[in-house]
Design a protein around this nucleic acid. Structure first.
Lengths: 239, 239
DNA sequence: TAATACTGAAACGATTCAGTAACAATACTG
DNA sequence: CAGTATTGTTACTGAATCGTTTCAGTATTA
């Protein structure tokens, strides 16, 4: 199983390095280009690129056309980086048909999830990467502990549940955004990198599965509350 | 929250079905017309259409004029489908002022993004979803607390009522505009994004429902006062 | 005071939303 | 590869919310 090759086209060194380190931490192989010309060069020399992630403002007309061709003729995924939302129109206007757009500033974890999904769709490759966390710190709330390393939930009595990935991510997201209402769209994105479509009950089902863990201790208060018409909200007392 | 109604005017069955399935996946309500006549018919029967997407070659002169009228007099967005780029000139020549046009073959994802943006601009309703609250701060008045995060009202004894969305919005609006008389029109707009029509008692009913919460503590003073012939006024002492 | 306009209230109906189980598909593991 | 774990989908049910209607009661005004 070969790792994916990602080409970053971005002139800002800071951004490029950040992207690079994120991707390398995920085990991808990273190539870099400063502008459209370099991009062309690199593509010529490397036939095995799986994904290009490029700043929308950079590569010039030729670069964009090249990207479009690559996307259509070969099996290369294409993601644009944009500075602000209004630039999304710009992308649409170009009619290039990117696979995804990401607005700066971006969240590394979200980015990696999206990329992984995209690559799984594009390549048959089954890469599974654990996530990289800077601060590995466990969270405690209402007597429960969320253990980051082992991705598990420990009840007040010490019973341990290994959490599936999406349940874990949902809880983590809740805890890292305490008190705020989280929409289904937001939760689904954090859990799977997907976008919410109508009639998708995935989030509800996952919430249900999470709640079941807490039921193991019946006296437990309502940890995840439903906000009708809006989403869910974590009500635990985080220590 | 009502979903948007989209009318597709297109004779090619394949294209129409494709559009339909794309929109329905997004949760929109889809109506279909084969030609200009059917379009006219359907518009007559449905007063609540938010967006029309039509093939530029179809509806004949009358259909186009009708579309133009709708766009100008009512608040209906209009998108044209064109076969080839050169037809774009045609649209411009017609001086109808479409909100957008899309050339076939189109990219579903691009289409949904454009539509979403357009509807957000057209329907005031959607403004409320976007509303971002920076300062999440709770409000207190006469011993009661309005908790923003959880969208709930806490009585002086600590009893907690989860508020429905429109009750919550009404109270929030009162508190953020203390002392001022709020007309029914204003309140309805804040609650639901709708405009007040004659004989609409929705606001009265909602106020009643809000007052019921306060009744749970009988000694409470009148928190929301009726201003005969004008509207309502919040009389709580905000801390 | 009588006529009129306005509001309160209850009850109902419609619609949208959330919870859940059961199943299907997919990914992961040994 | 087979078996298991996880994730996603569907369909159904009940609940929550919202809006309408109707009518009785209250305030306002001529």
């Amino acid at each position: 199983m070969s790792t994916a090759n990602i080409l970053i086209v971005e002139d800002e060194l800071v951004t490029r390095n950040m992207l690079k380190s994120v991707f390398e931490a995920e085990g991808y192989n990273v190539l870099e280009a400063n502008d459209g010309d370099q991009m062309q060069q690199i593509i010529k020399e490397n036939s095995n690129i799986n994904l290009i992630i490029m700043d929308i403002n950079l590569p010039g007309k030729n670069g964009l056309l090249l990207a479009r061709e690559l996307r259509e003729n070969q099996n290369i995924a294409l993601i644009f980086l944009t500075g602000r939302d209004n630039e999304v129109d710009k992308i649409l206007g170009l009619e290039i048909g990117a696979d995804d757009y990401i607005t700066k500033p971006f969240n590394p974890r979200e980015l990696t999830i999206r990329i992984r999904n995209l690559l799984t769709r594009t390549m048959q490759e089954n890469l599974y990467f654990e996530e990289v966390r800077e601060k590995v710190e466990n969270y405690k709330f209402n007597g429960w502990t969320l253990e980051i390393d082992s991705r598990s939930l420990i009840s007040p009595n010490g019973d341990l549940f290994k959490l599936p990935r999406s349940e874990f991510r949902a809880i983590l997201h809740f805890i890292e955004n305490p008190g705020k209402i989280q929409t289904r769209a937001e939760l689904l994105l954090k859990m799977t990198g997907r976008e919410l479509k109508a009639h998708d009950r995935t989030v509800d089902v996952t919430i249900r599965r999470i709640r079941k863990h807490f039921e193991s201790i019946p006296e437990a208060p309502e940890i995840i509350a439903t906000i009708h018409g809006e989403g869910y909200r974590f009500c635990g007392q985080i220590e």
